[in-house]
Design a protein around this nucleic acid. Structure first.
Length: 427
RNA sequence: GCGGGUGUGGUGUAGGGGUUAACACGUCUGGUUGUGGCCCAGAAGAUCGUGGGUUCAAAUCCCACCACUCGCCCCA
């Protein structure tokens, strides 16, 4: 056991049993996104490290050192497996001249991303994400549109008990002032903070709001809330987001403790929560990032988007008992007795496949009992076994054995079988 | 990086110092001459996560490591 090569920590194999979940989620997401006018864009899995450093923010060297898969190239350049999608998509927007496309540009993408952290429930080192962005639009309606793609995705997948958690994180004008007030308040109560929160207070004060330490509800309830310290522009924007949600009849919970750790977020931040996925209740997270395009060398481009981890959605579906339709079994198995009958069986199997009929061929290096081939057909839920023996071969026929009750076994010329099956299978 | 839990055939488990490690499911074969699902019989498959230590004797006790898992940190 120890000698065999194993999967890397935090990586997962997707086996056939899980495939229906993936297919359903991807199909639902793409269908939904297209109905809202999003178009698919795929960007490389690897980008210049610099892109993520700038995208993620000055103070976030933590990611660079510990959480990103970074490769030093021989020519001294540094490249990184994408830890998120937004930076790459904004880069693609700028580089491909999308600022001069009709605005806004609405794009979605699906693919893997990477983070080097200790895995836990719903958090893998490689995980796949569905990601939607509206770039070049500052209308709060765009925020709401993106939010509703997320919410409706989970609804269409059959989730129950979802809540919108929303907040505004301010902008370059009002956020710094708020942080000062928050820090001042927390410093006044520093004795009540856990060690870890004291550390956060110096490194990333907003994160203290996310503290899981006991007794924080009360302390933070008395802290200044950012919604009360927004500048006029941000306050107006936030108010309109809420009123549009209300106009849609969409409920939401204002969560003053909802902060996203990345510097580029401005104004709207949101998550969709579902109870019960371990410590991670969020099915998706997103928000507005009006300054990011400029940070990475592009024109001012107010934008909003969200990402949602597919593995985590699957976890949630399993917890909620949401089942995707399972893959349809192959309708036919072609059985034979080796030798010349095998050749004929091989030929028949390929003819059927060419005609669009799914067919499994019984393999048998040295011949195999009929019983064994029948068992194989049964195991795979085939509907018909087509048998070619010496007798059939001599007469150019094939025996059709139905596996379901109620159908009679028949025999017919091989030339007729494809048409016959097509008719039966389309019923 | 830190902490908890768990490591026995493919899967799920039992066993808890002493000669051939048990059970279920799964897999494969067979139950006459060319016909599945149930049933019956049989087979394959595990150096009991790895390495070291204690002992006459270790899957069982001790230590370390590794992996998986849950959580913390961080959250893209």
């Amino acid at each position: 056991m120890s000698k065999q090569i194993q999967r890397l920590t935090g990586m997962h194999d997707v086996l056939p049993d899980d495939r229906p979940y993936w297919d359903l989620i991807i199909a639902t997401a793409e269908n939904l996104a297209r109905r809202y006018g999003f178009q698919r864009v795929d960007t490389p899995i690897i980008e210049a490290t610099e892109l993520f450093i700038r995208g993620v923010g000055e103070g976030s060297d933590f990611f660079v050192q510990k959480e990103m898969y970074t490769i030093q190239e021989a020519d001294d350049s540094s490249i990184t497996l994408r830890p998120e999608f937004t930076a790459g998509l904004v880069r693609a927007y700028i580089q491909n001249g999308m600022p001069s496309w009709p605005q806004p540009v609405k794009i979605y993408t699906i693919g893997p991303s990477f983070r080097r952290e200790r895995p836990q429930a719903g958090r893998l080192r490689q995980h796949s994400q569905f990601d939607c962005e509206i770039m070049g639009e500052d209308d709060p309606a765009a925020d709401v549109e993106v939010m509703m793609v997320a919410m409706n995705l989970f609804r269409e997948l059959g989730f129950k008990g979802l809540t919108f958690q929303i907040n505004s994180t301010g902008c370059r004008v009002c956020k710094p002032g708020y942080i000062q007030k928050l820090v001042a308040y927390l410093n006044d109560h520093i004795d009540k903070l856990a060690d870890i929160d004291k550390e956060r207070l110096t490194k990333n004060p907003l994160r203290v709001l996310d503290s899981k330490a006991p007794g924080m509800d009360e302390l933070l309830g008395g802290a200044p809330h950012i919604a009360d310290h927004l500048c006029d522009d941000c306050r107006e924007h936030y108010a309109e987001v809420r009123s549009l949600l209300e106009a849609l009849g969409q409920s939401y919970a204002e969560n003053y403790r909802l902060v996203r750790g990345i510097d580029y977020y401005t104004k709207t931040v949101f998550e969709v929560w579902q109870e019960g996925i371990g410590a991670q209740a969020a099915l998706c997270g997103g928000g507005r990032y009006d300054g990011l395009a400029e940070d990475i060398g592009g024109p001012p481009t107010p934008s909003v988007g969200f990402g949602s981890g597919i593995e985590r959605i699957i976890l949630g579906m399993k917890e909620q008992g949401v089942e995707p339709p399972s893959a349809a079994p192959l309708p036919v198995l072609v059985a034979h007795f080796g030798g010349a009958t095998k050749s004929a069986a091989v030929k028949l199997a390929f003819e059927l496949r060419g005609a669009g009929i799914g067919a499994r061929l019984a393999f048998a290096r040295r011949g195999r009992s009929m019983k064994s081939q029948m068992r194989e057909a049964g195991r795979h839920d085939a509907r018909y076994v087509l048998i070619i023996g010496d007798d059939e071969l001599a007469q150019g026929e094939v025996t059709v054995k139905p596996l379901a009750d109620g159908e009679e076994q028949t025999r017919m010329p091989v030339e007729r079988i494809a048409a016959w099956l097509e008719e039966r299978l389309s019923e």
